[in-house]
Amino acid sequence: MQTPFVTTDWLSAHLEDDNLVIVDASWHMPNLARDPRTEFREGHIPGAVFFDIDAISDTSTDLPHMLPTPEAFAQAVGALGISETSQILIYDETGLFSAPRAWWTFKIFGAQNVAMLEGGGPKWRSEQRPTQTGDQSPEPTIFTPSFTPEAVVDFDTVLARLTDKKAQILDARPAPRFNAEVPEPRAGLRSGHMPGAINVPVGTLSEAGQLRSETELKALFAERGIDLNRPIITTCGSGITAAVLSLALQRAGAKSVAIYDGSWTEWGGRPDAPIEP
């Protein structure tokens, strides 16, 4: 699985592979009132384990689902029966929403063979493929992490890049939020965007839960004046859809992409962060 995606046909043919670990990484916006773990128990792809994006995170901060330490990540996914050499296949129940965040997280911590299910749970279900209920009890294993620090940036780095222009800042939030036309879904955050940021709404990157083609994505980025040969930092509301944007940039051939993990939850909550309407 050296491609970011595999098809439902591929998964159907490989469901029983010994080294394959299927991972449900579903996560939903708080305002949707959906509980992904409950939904997992009610039905998931056979053999899948549930990856809790909120729980497998840095618990020392109030910011949501920030990257954990390599050691904490290794302990959590080892308990799910996942090693760095496992064949890891990630999906979510939206189609293409939170799975890229988990995909990026596994890769940043050294997983050697990780992909996503094209179309996710909705496509699998639409094809009347099998599901199972309840929790899984995987056999724990050892995940040996190797961290890639350049793939993630913090507040101070983004602030510096806004000044020195050494990287382009791309924001995956919907245009009404980027343009301060609607309030943020999280209480207490200011509205608007970082000065000089470019809006690339996550909804423009996929169709029916599947990422657009390389040609389509290249055209989309070109229309917005984005130089794929220059460094790029992606951001969003809380670091989830920034990973979808990073994935799309990778497909389009971007040379250097990092995610601002704190994203707007941190930026919009800090009085010292510069904001444009």
Rank of each mutant, 00 (worst) to 15 (best):
2 Q>T: 14
3 T>F: 01
5 F>W: 13
7 T>K: 09
7 T>A: 06
8 T>W: 07
8 T>D: 12
13 A>K: 15
13 A>N: 15
14 H>A: 14
16 E>D: 14
19 N>Q: 14
22 I>E: 04
24 D>I: 03
25 A>E: 13
25 A>I: 14
27 W>N: 13
29 M>F: 07
30 P>L: 09
40 F>I: 12
41 R>E: 10
44 H>K: 03
47 G>D: 04
55 A>P: 13
55 A>G: 15
61 T>P: 11
62 D>W: 09
64 P>E: 10
69 T>R: 08
69 T>P: 08
71 E>F: 01
74 A>F: 08
77 V>L: 05
82 I>H: 07
89 L>E: 12
93 E>Y: 08
95 G>F: 01
96 L>M: 13
97 F>D: 04
98 S>Y: 06
101 R>W: 04
102 A>N: 12
102 A>R: 05
103 W>G: 06
104 W>E: 04
104 W>V: 06
104 W>T: 11
105 T>A: 00
107 K>G: 08
107 K>E: 10
110 G>C: 09
112 Q>I: 02
113 N>H: 12
113 N>W: 01
116 M>G: 08
116 M>Q: 14
119 G>V: 15
123 K>T: 14
126 S>W: 02
127 E>S: 09
128 Q>P: 01
130 P>Y: 01
130 P>H: 00
131 T>R: 06
132 Q>T: 15
133 T>G: 06
137 S>T: 14
137 S>R: 05
137 S>W: 01
149 P>F: 01
149 P>Y: 01
152 V>P: 14
153 V>E: 07
154 D>I: 01
161 R>M: 02
161 R>C: 00
165 K>L: 08
165 K>A: 12
167 A>H: 01
167 A>D: 00
168 Q>W: 10
172 A>Q: 05
173 R>G: 02
176 P>D: 08
178 F>V: 03
179 N>F: 02
184 E>C: 11
186 R>Q: 11
187 A>D: 15
188 G>S: 09
189 L>C: 11
189 L>K: 10
191 S>D: 14
193 H>Q: 04
194 M>F: 06
197 A>Q: 00
202 V>S: 03
202 V>M: 09
206 S>T: 09
206 S>W: 00
207 E>H: 12
207 E>K: 14
208 A>P: 01
209 G>P: 13
209 G>C: 05
212 R>G: 02
212 R>C: 00
214 E>R: 15
224 R>G: 08
227 D>I: 00
229 N>M: 08
230 R>D: 12
235 T>E: 11
237 G>C: 06
240 I>M: 09
243 A>C: 15
245 L>Q: 07
248 A>L: 03
248 A>N: 07
251 R>G: 00
254 A>W: 03
255 K>A: 13
256 S>Y: 00
259 I>T: 11
261 D>C: 05
267 W>F: 05
269 G>Y: 09
269 G>D: 10
272 D>Y: 12
277 P>Y: 02
